[in-house]
Design a protein around this nucleic acid. Structure first.
Length: 273
DNA sequence: CAAACTCCCTGTTAGC
DNA sequence: TGCTAACAGGGAGTTT
C-alpha cells in the first residue's frame, strides 16, 4: 500500500510526463472516487487547466493547476491512493481497464489513468490544498519535524507507539509498513507507551522514522518502472512472521495492534524502558 | 485524549 | 471441485 515513500516516488516520476500539459477531458467511471466537489463540477472545471507543479503532502499527491496562460495556481487536485490506487501515464491510448476509476485526457495525446481495485482512493479539487491537509501532523522528512518538537509531543501521549505512528495528525505519511520498520530499527516494542521513552530511545525513534522513510524513497525510486510495484522491497520486519529477525535470528512475531497487523521481534524490541 | 469499532471495497486464501 | 466466509488495510467518523 502506498505510504509516504511510494507517494513521493509517484510525485517525482509524474513531473516529467505531466508538468506543462493541459487537461482536455475527464471521465469518471466510479463517482465516489471524486470526493469534492460534485462529479459534474469536477469534470466541468478541470478541462483547460494546466499542470503547474506536482508535490506530495503526507500520502496525498498535490497537483497545482493554473489557467492556460498563468503561472499562478487557481485550483489544486489532491489524490489519495489509499489501499490500491495506481497512476499510469500513457502516450498511446490503451483500453480501459475494469479497475480504472478516472481517466484524464491531456494535451499531446497523453492520458493519466487512475486505477483502483478496492475503490478507496479519493480525489479532491479545491482552491487551496490546506482545505484537505490542515489537520495533518508534521512532514517527517522536513525541517518542521524536529527532535525537540517530537520529544515534547511524545511526552503528552499515553497510547501505544504503533498506533501513534499511524496517527496522521501526529506525524504525516507513515503507514502500517513503515511504522513497523521504524520501530524495529529503533528497537522499540510496538506496544510501548509513547510517554515512557528515555531520551536515548526518543532519539532512536526519531532517527529510525527518518531512516526508514528515506530508505523507502531510495528503493521505490530505483524500482519505479513507469508503474509502482511493491514486491521488490526487502522489508526488515514487515510481513516476515515466523522468519528469523535480521538482527538476532529469533522468529518475527505477528500480532494485532489497533486493528492492524503488526510485525516485531520480541527479543530485540524492548517493551519496558 | 485514547481505545474500540464501523464503514467503504474486492482479490486472495483458508475452510468446509 | 466448488462454494462461502474471513481477511487485509488507510483513514474518516462515531461511540464509549
Amino acid at each position: 500500500m502506498p505510504e509516504l515513500p511510494e507517494v513521493e516516488s509517484y510525485a517525482r516520476a509524474l513531473r516529467a510526463p505531466l508538468i506543462g500539459r493541459t487537461i482536455t477531458a475527464v471521465r469518471v467511471y466510479w463517482p465516489r472516487t471524486v470526493a469534492q466537489p460534485s462529479v459534474r463540477e469536477f469534470t466541468r472545471r478541470l478541462p483547460g487547466l494546466r499542470v503547474n507543479a506536482i508535490d506530495r503532502r503526507a500520502k496525498y499527491l498535490v497537483f497545482a493547476l493554473s489557467a492556460k496562460s498563468s503561472q499562478v495556481p487557481t485550483d489544486y487536485l489532491l489524490i489519495h491512493l489509499k489501499m490500491s490506487g495506481q497512476l499510469d501515464v500513457t502516450s498511446h491510448p490503451k483500453p480501459i481497464d475494469k479497475h480504472d476509476r478516472v481517466i484524464f485526457d491531456l494535451s499531446g495525446g497523453r492520458r493519466l489513468h487512475f486505477n483502483d481495485m478496492r475503490k478507496f482512493g479519493r480525489m479532491y479539487l479545491v482552491p487551496h490544498p490546506e482545505v484537505i491537509t490542515e489537520r495533518l501532523g508534521p512532514e517527517p522528512l522536513s525541517d518542521e519535524f524536529t527532535l525537540d518538537g517530537f520529544r515534547q509531543r511524545l511526552r503528552k501521549r499515553k497510547g501505544r507507539l504503533k498506533s501513534l505512528l499511524l496517527d496522521q495528525t501526529f506525524i504525516a505519511g507513515i503507514g502500517n509498513i513503515y511504522a513497523d520498520e521504524a520501530l524495529w530499527l529503533a528497537r522499540l516494542h510496538p506496544l510501548r507507551r509513547a510517554d515512557s521513552l528515555s531520551e536515548a530511545e526518543t532519539r532512536a525513534l526519531y532517527r529510525a522514522i527518518r531512516a526508514a522513510l528515506r530508505e523507502g524513497i531510495k528503493r521505490n525510486g530505483a524500482s519505479f518502472d513507469r508503474v509502482y510495484r511493491s514486491g521488490d522491497y526487502k522489508f526488515r520486519v514487515y510481513a516476515r512472521a515466523d522468519r528469523p529477525c535480521r538482527r538476532c535470528r529469533q522468529p518475527i512475531r505477528r500480532t494485532v495492534v489497533g486493528q492492524r497487523g503488526t510485525y516485531f521481534c520480541a527479543t530485540c524490541q524492548s517493551l519496558r524502558g
